[in-house]
Structures are given as structure tokens and as C-alpha cells.
Amino acid sequence: MSETNIEIQDLNLTRKDFVPGNEVRWCPGCGDYSVLANMQKTLPVMGVKKENYAFISGIGCSSRFPYYMNTYGFHSIHGRAPAIASGVKLANPELAVWIITGDGDGFSIGGNHMIHALRRNIDMNIMLFNNRIYGLTKGQYSPTSLLGAKTKSSPFGSIDRPFNPSAVALGANATFISRALDVDAKGLQESIKRAQRHKGASFIEVYQNCIIFNDGEFSDVENKATRPDNALFVVHGEPMIFGKEQDKGIIMENHHPKVVQLGDKYSEKDLLVHDETNQIITNLLLEMTFDTSNPTPFGVLRAVEAPTYDEMMIEQIKAVTKIKGEGTLEDLFYSGDVWEVK
């Protein structure tokens, strides 16, 4: 596991410290509320001072998030939050930087910034609200909408093959990937905590219900009754077990994941064991995303250590300064061939 077991200082912060006075303006019943509440609940116990949090977002319903957090915040322009946040973090590495984005914001217009922020491994946390729809612009299909999705701009069904955002994150060499459900407080809090502690770019994909334009998109896993049979919550070092009766598991067959019934033929020891540091396992889990014969995986899918851009920047500045000495304007101005007019 990449997360260091740092001692967390109690700063006497509570949820209330993170709630600003203004009114939250998402549609009643929107999945965003729960994510906000869990963020406000989790941050006070992370050992980070309130003034050191900065929330940077793009444009979309979800991107209004910073206005509802009583921290430093920047609601920017469509798709550009990862780039803006990169500058924030490099200018002030002390900050705990959170990027809030949507499936359109982060994977359509801002796709380029997303993959590059992940690949550089700048120490920031990216939370994607994936509702598989453009909420703010009133219901067009997004790059995560499934084939056939009937939306305002795809009345006959979408013919646009979707992204699997977490798989894109892996493709971009992300060092931390987790997936959570808006209705699952425990899973959300776990993802938030782990992401905040992870050194490097963390990517959290939240399945979020848009009650107005895409209601029920994730009903198989959101619905309490069907969730256990459709969702697999992975834990590092534990076998992959799911089902209402905890009686199903995942094995690897012909290099692909496959659901098996625990009992006569298979026992726990036959099952795949989750290893968040193993890219093959992460790949396997991600492959299950759109595969209806498999459950949808949630939890920390990947967490590995890698040098962060921000740290390397600081180290490079130190190293060059050590060799060349701290630069002065005299050094700089006189660095060419100088002559004097007397």
C-alpha cells in the first residue's frame, strides 16, 4: 500500500467548519448532496488545516461543489480544473488540492488536462462525478453515456462508445484509482480518506445519480436490494467475494475475470485476491465495469507509489541551487558577454 501511516493531528475541526452559509442549489434528490456531506464529514479528521484545502472545479452541476465548501475554492472554466489546480499546487505545495469535475467536464472538454494531470502524478485529488449525462446543460449524452442511451441529443440512442473513466485513469498511469457510489457513505469516506493521504494524483470515480436527466442509471448498484449481487467491494489483500450471502467470488479464467459460486467446486482460496499495487488485478477489475456477467467493482482499485511532480520540482530547485548557488539578478544580467562603455 502506498499510503504512509502518518499520525493524524487532531485539529479540533468539525463538519460545521466546512459548511459555508450559502444555500446549496442542486436539484432535490441529486446524488451530489451525499458526496458533499461525506466530504464535509471526512475532511475535518484528515489532520489538514481548513485553510490549507483548496477546491478547484470546472463547469457543470457537480462543479458548483467549491461554493458549498467553506474552504478556498475556485470554480473555473469548463474542463480546465486539473490544469488550474496543477498551478495552485506548484505555487503552494502546502495545500491539499481537490479537483471536482464531471464526466463531461473531465472527460470530454477537459480530457486532455485530465490524463496529463494523472500522468504527471502531481499530488492532488481528482473527484469525478460520473452521472453519465450532461446535467447542467439539461441532459445531453456524455462521453460516459452507454451505447443506446436516449438523451436530448441522442433521441434514437447514443452511437458514441463510452469511456470507462477509471480505465482511462489507469491508461494515463494514475497512481491511485478508486470508485465509489454516491449512496454509499462508508465507501465514499474511505475513498476520500485514502485519496487525501495518497501522495500523488488520486482519482476517485463517483457513480452519481442525476435524478432529473438520467435517473436510475446505476440502479443495479444503488438499489440496496440488488447492490450486493451487482457490486464487488474490493479490499487490499482480501479475496474478491460478493453477493447477498457472500457466496460468490471472482476467479481468473483464460485471463478474464469470472464469477463463481462458492461451495462444492470453489472455495475462498480459489478466488482472486485484491492487490491494489498490481496493475494486472486493476485491469481485470476495470474490465468488469461494462460486463454484465460480472459485478461492478468499487473501492480502491489501485494505489502505487511514484515520485510526484511537485516534489521533483522542489528537489530540482534545491539541487540546481546547491550547484549554482541562489541566483541573484546580478548573476542573471551578467551571464552573457558584457562590455563597458566608459
Binding site: F74, I84, V88, L90
Partner: peptide
């Protein structure tokens, strides 16, 4: 990664 990110990162740095 592009000019948009160039200015966007600068805006972020300015904010910070």
C-alpha cells in the same frame, strides 16, 4: 499539455 493548460496553470499559480 497545451496552451490552455499553460494559461490555466498560470491562473492557478496566481491564485495561490
Amino acid at each position: 499539455e497545451d496552451e490552455i493548460a499553460g494559461i490555466a496553470s498560470a491562473i492557478g499559480a496566481s491564485y495561490a
